[in-house]
Amino acid sequence: MHNVVHLDNLNKVFKLKTGSFFKRSEREIQAVSNISLDIPKGQSIAFIGPNGAGKSTTIKMLTGILHPSSGQASVLGLTPWKQRDKLAYKIGVVFGQRSQLWYHLPPGDTFELLAQIYNLKKNDYQKRRDMLIERFGLSSFLDIPVRRLSLGQRMRAEVAASLLHAPEIVFLDEPTIGLDVIARQELRDLIRQWNQEEGLTVFLTSHDAGDIENVARRVIVINHGQIVLDDKVSQMRRQYLASKVLAVKFHEPPLSPAISGISILKSSQYTLKLEVDTNIIPIEQVVNEVLKLGPVADITIENPPLEKVIAHIYAQGNKLAPDRNDNET
């Protein structure tokens, strides 16, 4: 399959000067360390990691904003920091913390300006704009200045603006930051639909497990500038954390469980919620033991929440590199 992104041993080192006025010392901070990866066309990936892990630095190198200290990168066959102008026609970028919409103007005016910036032909632009307005539900606030929009409306307009020039890949850096539950879900649905229906490659960073589950098929975890996990989202949850959550309802009050390898998360008169460490005891054995505690009315086995999986991966990464710094650039 054709790769739209190819990274080969990408490194970025920042030099940091510290000290007093007279005595300055310089030290190096390795923001990104030997990252290599390929992203095929049409794939949606979540690129996640704790603050200071090197996510934004990587995105900035992939979009041509920053030069790497060493290593190679190719996005849609172009070297981002050398061919930034050409690349800009083919990529869309949304920074959740930085807007490309004009604060005092309606989104429609920014769209007009973007058409000029990207040299879009009038007919093509109008067709594309009308389609985006319909798909992103922008018509009701297209003529309202951005400063008067809700954050959810603004982010919908923001993502639509990034797709106006029909990019082949879109980089979304924390697009759902600050959004409420509904706005967040709406935006996730739109991004997922665009990925599935239009074949748009999506490169997403987020701290929200919901974004990762709802939008991405593949997850790449970065910590201390290094890739610590690269897997399918579903696999990550199943394999990376060896625990299951067992929820049991009884017809009668059950006996107290005395099984090694489990911990009780919640207990009431007729229910038990247990966390099972499958490294210590297989889940089948726990089920068998639970059936002995009393007459079972219902039983469910769940994977742990994705937040927990991610926190676990981050924690493991921190153990591997205890001298981490908190610099996020």
Partner: peptide
């Protein structure tokens, strides 16, 4: 660090 947004457009950075 606000030059970022200008570097994402297909135009010469400085005049744009």
């Amino acid at each position: 660090g606000q030059l970022d947004i200008w570097m994402l457009y297909p135009r010469k950075l400085l005049p744009h």
